[in-house]
């Protein structure tokens, strides 16, 4: 930063230079203050399943037209209940895949036969809207193997998550980008 020989050092230039030095000192001080508070890795948003109260706002509050939040099934936690309270609505006529028996408003849960009397429940993410109806059913009466997660193939990672702002359970947290999911795992038997 050499001084321009054409420009004389007048009051204005001097004040400008002084202000610049002061501002750069301020920027330096800010950097020093923030040095301990920065993280080399970025963060992404995720739902802590332990805090989620299944209020259903994930389906509507996301900035995307179809929410980035979807239901995820932790098969290892699933009890493979015959009357799956995540799949069937309250008091189903019969335990079949008929639409009137299903809890999911978009029929996003696929029920496939494994062996008598067990069925596997699989979430079709194209159809799932993240409304948490099945999650509520499963957590209320079952093992809680269905839970909501931000799906990072869809999430645009807003600076302030629009769902986090209205989340009833305050369940949205920033997680490191290299551990982007908070999955439910099989509890260790004591």
């Amino acid at each position: 930063m050499s001084t321009n020989p054409k420009e004389p050092v007048n009051r204005r230039n001097f004040l400008g230079a002084a202000a610049r030095v002061a501002a750069m000192t301020g920027v330096g001080a800010l950097l020093g203050k923030l040095a301990g508070a920065t993280a080399a890795k970025g963060t992404v948003w995720q739902i802590d399943p332990a805090k989620c109260v299944r209020c259903g706002k994930c389906a509507t509050a996301c900035v995307l037209e179809q929410s980035a939040v979807k239901c995820v099934h932790a098969y290892a936690v699933c009890g493979y209940c015959e009357l799956c309270t995540g799949y069937f609505g309250p008091e189903p006529n019969e335990l079949t895949t008929a639409a009137e028996n299903q809890l999911c408003p978009t029929a996003a849960i696929q029920r496939t036969y494994i062996e008598d009397p067990y069925y596997q429940y699989h979430i079709d993410e194209k159809l799932c809207i993240g409304c948490a109806k099945c999650v509520d059913g499963c957590n209320r009466y079952g093992n809680g193997s269905l839970f909501l997660q931000v799906r990072h193939d869809r999430c645009v990672n807003c600076n302030e998550c629009a769902i986090a702002r209205v989340c009833a359970g305050d369940a949205f947290v920033r997680v490191p980008v290299d551990q982007p999911y908070l999955l439910k795992t099989k509890p260790t038997t004591s």
Partner: peptide, 23 residues
């Protein structure tokens, strides 16, 4: 612990793992 312990499958059914699309 789980309310309903997972069954012991006899048909050789393998538990799928949930997918985790990367950010």
């Amino acid at each position: 612990e789980q309310r309903f312990p997972p069954p012991d499958f006899e048909s050789g059914y393998q538990l799928p793992t949930p997918t985790t699309p990367a950010p």
